[in-house]
Design a binder for these strands. Sequence first.
DNA 1: GCGACGCTATGAAACGATTCAACACCAGCG
DNA 2: CGCTGGTGTTGAATCGTTTCATAGCGTCGC
Lengths: 332, 332
Amino acid sequence: MSVSVKDVAARAGVSVGTVSNVLNTPAKVAAETAERVHRAIAELGFVRNDAARQLRAGTSRSIGFVVLDVGNPFFTDLVRAAEERAAESGLAVLIANSGEQQAREAAGIDLFEEQRVRGVLVSPVGEISERLERLRSRGTPAVLVDRVASTPGFSSVSVDDVAGGRLAARHLLEGGRRRLLFVGGPLDLEQVRDRLQGARDAVAAVTGATLEALPIGALTVRHGVDAGREILAMPEPPDAVFAANDLVALGVLQAVGLLGGLRVPDDLAIVGYDDIEFAASAGVPITSVRQPRDRMGATAVDLLLAEIDGATERSRIVLQPELVVRASSAGR
Amino acid sequence: MSVSVKDVAARAGVSVGTVSNVLNTPAKVAAETAERVHRAIAELGFVRNDAARQLRAGTSRSIGFVVLDVGNPFFTDLVRAAEERAAESGLAVLIANSGEQQAREAAGIDLFEEQRVRGVLVSPVGEISERLERLRSRGTPAVLVDRVASTPGFSSVSVDDVAGGRLAARHLLEGGRRRLLFVGGPLDLEQVRDRLQGARDAVAAVTGATLEALPIGALTVRHGVDAGREILAMPEPPDAVFAANDLVALGVLQAVGLLGGLRVPDDLAIVGYDDIEFAASAGVPITSVRQPRDRMGATAVDLLLAEIDGATERSRIVLQPELVVRASSAGR
DNA sequence: GCGACGCTATGAAACGATTCAACACCAGCG
DNA sequence: CGCTGGTGTTGAATCGTTTCATAGCGTCGC
């Protein structure tokens, strides 16, 4: 069907080995010969078959990234940072979207394994070290992203979500808020649990302050809107909302603003999480807990590359979040 | 290194052909034999090598999608829709981000060709039919997305951007605006030129109305912010802005709102394009021209699949946009 | 004039899964 | 008993690239 090295070799009047050398080790080939081969390649429209190349090499030139939600700008930024770092080492990044579903996450990992990727980056939905353990035992290293490894066997890059939750809640408390509501879910997500835990810690330190939790099915704008509706219907609404991420915060803001009843930040303060670009341009610019996503993506790739190159020690890198204060949480 | 069918065959006491049959045509294998093979697979942790499979098959089970900007939710939605439809046919979607750069677009296409993808979806930066022509002449069909094919040889799915521009400008004019400013670029992008052209048409029909154009380097929030700054510095600022997409609109809104001077929509009306989810939750909810992204993604895959299956006729499908009116463009 | 060396080029082997013609075996039938 | 047809299984050939041991050839130094 398609043009192969054999055809090129015939056309240029050389052997297949020489064609391969022109492609991979040009230094070994006489200039005049190389020229002839290049001409044949151009004339025939030869394109390398990566499958054959990879079969021979025994491994691909790519790594896989299983992402929680590609619709979330936080993750696209993460992917971009990872891609950039991987490209420096000549590796491509394959993307699989788990959509917060364990089954799709597993399917993505299986797919990557069949592709013989060099390694896998995962921002996991639930508990998957067992599956990753199997993966690694067959020679494919994995690094957890946005999540602390629960077993010592894996490296991970994450942000201290408990600290982030504490930052957010403390900020709200300092602004005079006392009836806090945490909006986030599903609670399978460790990130969600940790942020809630951090908020609990901060609230416990202030007498008279309370914290309720409103669980939702996914961290999306839509679910945030639904939560906002529920808040409006509450007999005794909270005076502050801490949303598990910015998408949810945007949804809540939109709902309470559009459907009336509550003014932000006067009646209701809102703090989000991730500091995605859209948080700043929201109706009321949203205060958010910023995660160093560029550094996370790059560091994750670094750890993975180290492991690919045979490093045996594992690192659990925990980066610190930082609070970006905007109008949505002004004190009163 | 890794476990192959040969190892599995040895362990199960059968031939490699039988292992392959268990995997691909289980009906041909006796139940008891299949059972034995499956046990061997589990014990050895065998994972199919996709490269070998693909080499033999001569083609992959995936299609490629070269996207203009993965950071733009419009495109992630497009990709999601395409993925869904492709999955129904058992095809995976590989993603390459061109970031509005011709060189990266070309690199993405080359990569896909080496992978022997079944077909390619492209939302092209500039004029690339020549490159796609070559691609197709070697057996890989391509379909243009978000862009009308300029040569009859290619199918395309797009939205009538001239109509969209007309919709936006007409709406602003009907709201009493007369000094319109178009913010968008680079003008290499046909989408941008068309939207501008539509606006020009609408403005020409109204005496006394003017339309200036403020070119920017890319369709991002950042560039929108810069444009907003320029607007604030104008001696005779416009009374309405038509932004080439929602990211730019968000940037303009953010800049003129934050840096003061102009109130939206009182002093300055804003209309965006794409109707991404964040447009609705913006500071002032943004009026936008909505494109049917789900239908675009699915239709593009359908056209590509048809061409892969040997269809020879080409279709240029042009969908109609629709205006979603929100607060940012209220008349006066 | 001869051996050694460097520079090029060669072509067969290998990677791992799939395919397919060929074969073994058995049951049923005449 | 021989033949037919069906069911299971085999193993060699194949896909396209890279690698590597080998060899051809000219040049240089002695």
